[in-house]
Design a protein around this nucleic acid. Structure first.
Ligand code: FES
Ligand code: FES
Lengths: 141, 141
DNA sequence: TAGATACTTGACTATTTTAGTCAGGTTTAT
DNA sequence: ATAAACCTGACTAAAATAGTCAAGTATCTA
């Protein structure tokens, strides 16, 4: 199981943004340079973040992005959800009573994968952007 | 983040095996039919499981596979490890002091991904094959 | 008001990974 | 002998990933 770059970059970029989220909007160009992420790719990512109202955009010179909520209120879940990074442990449809591989009932291991999915999602629901930034500045002290 | 079929199948197949692990070895053909997994693919998977001494093979007619340890002693970690299903949340090398994207230090979010990786691995270290089979027969009662 | 900066959008593509298949073995019980 | 079952390695189609590229639009500042 691996985390995709898109998800990782989204969080990295927002952490960067949260850290510089004071007076001025932060341009993607700056984030791109600081975090070493392709500008074009960042644009794709931020387009999604904006649509889910996690960030707000300010166009024109001196423009950029700002957080649309308090860092405390932005959970990793929200970020991953926005960029379609989802945790998926099974192939079988959740709603359907059918199991994987076309079986008529759920397989032996189905519950396990459900548990796993919850276990991982719990982590994402607990962590907020604030935790990230705070944790990091504590370390620096 | 998603779980690959290889990992899922390995656990499914071993759960099946554990359940029928009484007198006779279990043939891959049977597992293939019961679980709806391609026989050829199962062979690849069991080759790895055997090399890591999770199962033992018995060749010839009436042959098949048996568990090489008690179900209680086979953790998901061991299974995933055997089939190279690994949890990977970062690109940067663990040992290296360098960060992702060629930076000279670890990035803002590196600790987070480390935590995530541990969080997931903990789950795999706790669960054993026995849990799986027991859990399931309890449900059946 | 010209120009630069920065956001916006959608299409396109190379690479990698996944999820197998296929072909040809070898071993052993009956 | 023969059939059942394991064993091995090479191959491949399809999907997912990680971007790139092109052509805009909006807004600030000189
Ligand atoms: S994973 Fe859901 S039925 Fe097998
Ligand atoms: S993830 Fe390890 S340095 Fe960025």
């Amino acid at each position: 199981m691996k985390l995709t770059s898109k998800g990782r970059y989204a969080v990295m970029a927002l952490a960067d943004l949260a850290r510089f989220n004071n007076v001025n909007p932060v341009s993607l160009r700056d984030i791109s340079l600081r975090q070493g992420i392709s500008l074009d790719y960042l644009e794709q990512i931020f387009s999604k973040l904006r649509k889910k109202e996690i960030v707000q955009s300010i166009r024109g010179t001196q423009g950029g992005y700002v957080l649309n909520k308090k860092a405390k209120e932005i959970k990793l879940t929200n970020i991953f959800d926005a960029v379609d990074e989802k945790v998926k442990t099974v192939q079988c449809k959740k709603e359907s009573k059918k199991g994987c591989n076309g079986k008529s009932t759920k397989c032996l291991t189905h519950n396990l994968w459900d548990e796993l999915e919850n276990h991982i999602n719990n982590f994402f629901e607990e962590k907020s952007l604030e935790d990230l930034v705070k944790n990091n500045s504590e370390k620096r002290v």
